[in-house]
Write a protein that binds this DNA or RNA. Sequence first.
DNA 1: TAGTTGGGTTTTTTT
DNA 2: AACCCAACTA
Length: 802
Amino acid sequence: MSIYDTLNKEQKEAVFQTEGPVLILAGAGSGKTRVITHRIAYLMDECGVNPWNILAITFTNKAAGEMRERVDRLIGFGSESIWISTFHSMCVRMLRRYSDRIGYENSFTIYDTDDQKQLMKDVYKKLGIDTGDIAPRAVLSAISSAKNELISPAQYKEQNGSDYRNRVIGDAYEEYQRMLKANNAMDFDDLLMMTVILFQNDDAVLKNYQERFHYIMVDEYQDTNSAQFELIRLLSAGRHNLCVVGDDDQSIYKFRGANIRNILDFEKLYPDAKVVKLEQNYRSTGNVLDAANAVIANNTNRKPKKLWCDQGRGNKLHFRRFNTGPEEASFIAQDIERRIRQDGSLSYRDFAVLYRTNAQSRLLEEKLLFLSIPYDLIGGTNFYERREIRDILSYLKTIDNGVDDLAVRRILNVPKRGIGQTTIDRVQAFADEGGISFYDALKRIGDIPSAGRAKAKIEEFTSLIEGLRIRAAGSSLKDLIDGIVTATDYEAFLKDTYEEDSADRIANIGELVNKAVSYEEGVFEEAGDERGGVSLLTGFLEEVALIADIDQVGDSDDRVLLMTLHSAKGLEFRNVYMAGMEEGLFPSQMSIDAPDDEGVEEERRLAYVGITRAREDLTLTYAMSRMVHGEVRYSPVSRFLLEIPEELLDESIRITSGGYADEQPYSSRSSGYRKEGDYDDYDFGHKYSSPYAEQAPVKKDNRLKAVYVKPHTAEEKKPFIARSMAKNGVNAGLSGLSKGQPSPKQKPDYTEGDRVRHVKFGDGTVRLLEDTPRDYKVTVEFDEAGQKVMYAAFAKLEKIDG
DNA sequence: TAGTTGGGTTTTTTT
DNA sequence: AACCCAACTA
């Protein structure tokens, strides 16, 4: 009995073929990760390969961590010496060691999207390009594509015609790259391209890595771009032991340069490649797979394959149509609540709601919060993109690497020090003339003639930084961050800049400190880690830069997950909702408008990814109308829904399909168990209008603006709420509501740390009490039910002793 | 220099 | 609806 006995025939073939190029075409849920981990185990266990000689590349840090863990469980030794990482972190690791050989300092910083935008603004200013002429984002995206194709600024200029647009982009690319280097910074695309350049220019370095990595494995190969392809090709050129795993049907990252040809042409590049197809699915039931197969069959350019399973038909897929987005979201929230109530084996973590665009998450969040359903939102505004976090990180960057002009300029007047644009421009001009960094120019403020009044303020700033630098040398990251916050009186700054949610923001900084502490602990644990002498601070900043949204998800929390279809790749859930199944949204209008059908085919692959996330149960929802950019948009049912054979669905689409959904009266659709009028927007706790409404000033755009409708008093609300409750049927999920209407915003009589009792969840401890515009948001750690976030007015928590 | 206001633009997806 | 920017005022 060996660990390999549990593999099926094809999986074994893939595991045992250790030599030469191997292409594993792994359908969704076909046990791909099992194959990779068993293959690594087999190499080490049976073939005597040193773990040090194995490289495995995954798509996300989360996947990397899981893979290491699973290898460990299989063989129990040596997994820590295998290189398992993402493309980007692998490149950083190599560049930290050798980037001085291509003209960067090894302490380079990493620029994220926001930094890129900022830098591009400077480029525009310097070259005198008009933002109205060519959108900066268009230039950045052209540069990104160029880098993904390994095209240098010089090559770009050479290859592209001399028409105005191309010339501007070429010049901007050149200047952008020059400024990056001056700031000792690389953007995400540079990490890949510079590593390739390093390999191309320095044979010794390449040889070194070729000799180190005897066996290379690449996961999600269908999403590699040309730079990644070249990287892998170079690395594996010595021994050709390259095993790539992927599924051309799940290629969904064309917009960031992924080249589907990499996987489709693998056999052309390596004629001796062994090809293994994994088509047996271990994840989903028959109906789900049939739907996935039927949808993806509409794509033309693909390697034919068909998923199958021996798990029986399972439930039919559910289709639900709604008039508006809020109704759709209400339904999903209630449906989750209902299922959990009816099936004791289900808990929140068994549910995921997937959507095409991040903007769709807002409504869902609102409705889940309303029903006190705990959830986690993946993506959207990343934690590290929040203003307060970026400020603190900029302080850290400035302390760590004074050459990063962007970081210095960001914090120079944050909190306000009375240093204005004029001063900044003068300092910048001085820096440009002398060819020195912005920070060094600040330190020589005495040499800048016209800087009279600002001089004292700037000296204050630089001595602040110098002081923190001294502090950084000996202290922990936590102490350093605390030091920054204290020295700048940052909390006071937050409090008077953001009256509304300053508490949230202060809490975020606390969260950053937590992350710093756990990073530090991690570094001390893995003393063997070859960080190449990089300082604690540099290491932390680097990890922060490369973190992906999905990496944050732990499986310890019992929460519903909300995320985009893109983020969901690689995950699985017992119950999946796909929301917003509408033409123009999914597939996106852009892909529909494109002259060829490649865009729509990519969207269809995204649909395939979404469908195959479901293990047992899949619900597809459609909203006839939806608010987009502040106006109502009506859309027909998504073509992807129509591609699902009708007999797989529990409710017919066709009655109202084939055109705009409002072509037929709403009441003519088939009924199912749902009655007309169900799932209305429950959102009457705030912002609804009625004859009772009064006029009052209201905030719009976060500014005090026009005269608007003021929420009703509790007394006025009563008839409305009674009607609404009768119509919708109050259920246990609305426990707080069923006892009456929510009271107007009122500070609860409990506070953080207090013990409280909830009618449904029992006793618990208040962890967090936040003041939000509508109501107090309270986070409670329940003894039995775990942690929940809810609105105080609805939760009806009762303070108890002990 | 800082704060306010009006107008124009925007989002598809992410390492 | 939310964000960004430029112009204006104090």
